[in-house]
Design a protein around this nucleic acid. Structure first.
Lengths: 276, 276
DNA sequence: CCTCCGCCAACTGTTGACAGATGGCAGTCC
DNA sequence: GGACTGCCATCTGTCAACAGTTGGCGGAGG
């Protein structure tokens, strides 16, 4: 109803409608709040390693760095706290969360379970278009592997898993998988993807697609779980703290409550000159 | 070292040491921030139904009601936004999240997957003490069922699942299961637990424990998944929107982006007199 | 020389205040 | 009489300032 009523409004709807394009800066300001942008930026800093695990988050330093007030920074940090990327101690500050080896293994298991679920469902419901998209991603990864281009492989791998979870699981599963992956990043910075690993990993991807294409739900589930288990194994192979494992799964006695919330030496206060 | 050095400090340590007891109000203020308490309170309001799904969260009204400033309220809401309980729209406000039927089913599947995982691991690692604790909880539920006491059953059920996830999965799994359960609460207020459901549910609990005690990991996993699947089925039986399902699993075409962020009529601004 | 106490700087927690946006209501112009 | 425009109350987004706490450093005392 009404054709020319509010051309401005119409323009807004248009620019909102066209997704995927560059969000045009003005639209960003109009739709996202400062706090959400700050959260996104801090999250990026953490995942990129600029803020390593255990690091303290200085509110006013971050605020000054991002040219905003402390309010949005605090709101952003509260959000990141809920999502498990940082831990906060009252009157002391927030720290980038440290993930123990045991927690990392647990997260791998969770990812395996939900990936298997998505694969199984996808085996019963995959559309030709979805299969084509997944196959194209595997092809991209294969190309990146041959070119020995780990960054490209890594990006395509992320897309593949996101598509897998989105098609087979749903938006909630997708977000969960992403969050778990982010937490995993906190355990020891190590983006090194070796050529052998790439080949092995992509072979598992192909196996997943094969089972899905065959409509074999149990096989697809097993393949999906095996893939994440393979990632867990490859992850352990490059790590020292997890290899001297006590035979199998760490028996979790219930005597550990908090594994030291303020993990490192909290250098704060005092008469130390500020770091500029 | 030093006996009477700082009796106050010593007292604080003492009160911190005694866990499980009433947190003594003063200790709460000293360890938890206002924002976290506000978040806890708002979360309670949402889960209890005082703030129904789709409801708008008025910041200053909440601030006035809780006798705090808007700052902590905003921080709390940002946290709840990250955890999926509320959605925020810029310059318009935050709303209690509405969960669609399809999302609810997806969440059930996720819970089934991680519950199955925990059961399988527990089948290989359960200690006698853990088994005893789980058996005691099943017994409590059975007692509650005989007494036709749904609230007690409900509470024990929560404890049972928390223990299951904590023993077999770990803290991360436990928290995840809890969060998913909270989201599920947002789909249609319906705490009605029928006697038949209680019996069926607890029978499934017993089946899980039997498989775990036998050390049969695949069987334990299947039992755990079947239990959540049973919950999903019982849930569907009491709901109308999910029963006219199209055969199987809703095929998720990618044409739905956001299912209306401002869900209801956002009554704001204008010259309406405020609701006191 | 060692121990202990007081001081102080830096930081977090919280509040109050200001600017901008939103959406309904009423008056006004065709 | 219907549609539109301006106005205004309400609320959110953001900022700046105040109060309280923390933890190390230096001086006083033994």
């Amino acid at each position: 109803m009404a054709v020319r009523i509010g051309t401005l409004r119409a323009m807004e709807d248009m620019s909102q409608a066209e997704r995927g394009t560059a969000p045009s800066a003005l639209e960003i300001v109009r739709t996202r709040s400062l706090a959400s942008l700050v959260a996104q930026e801090i999250e990026r800093m953490i995942l990129s390693g600029a803020l390593p695990a255990g690091e303290r988050l200085n509110e006013q330093q971050l605020a000054a760095q991002l040219r905003v007030s402390r309010g949005p920074v605090r709101e952003a940090v509260r959000g990141l706290e809920r999502s498990g990327l940082v831990v906060a101690v009252r009157n002391q500050g927030s720290y980038v969360r440290t993930v123990s080896a045991q927690e990392a293994l647990e997260i791998y298991d969770l990812r395996a379970a939900i990936t298997g679920l998505a694969c199984a469902r996808l085996a019963e419901s995959a559309s030709p278009a979805q299969m084509a998209a997944l196959r194209a991603l595997v092809k991209r990864m294969d190309t990146a592997r041959r070119a020995d281009d780990p960054p490209s492989y890594y990006a395509a791998n992320l897309e593949f898993h996101a598509a897998l979870l989105g098609f087979g699981g749903g938006p909630r599963s997708q977000r969960l998988y992403e969050d778990l992956g982010n937490e995993l990043h906190l355990f020891r910075r190590r983006a090194l993807v070796q050529p052998e690993n790439m080949r092995e990993s992509n072979a598992e991807h192909a196996a997943i697609l094969k089972a899905i294409a065959a409509g074999d739900a149990p096989a697809a589930r097993a393949a999906g779980e095996a893939h994440i288990a393979g990632g867990k194994r490859r992850f352990r192979a490059t790590d020292t703290t997890t290899t001297p494992g006590k035979g199998r799964k760490g028996e979790n006695d219930d005597d550990q409550d908090d594994p030291s919330p303020p993990p490192a030496d909290g250098r704060r206060g005092g008469r130390t000159r500020r770091a500029d």
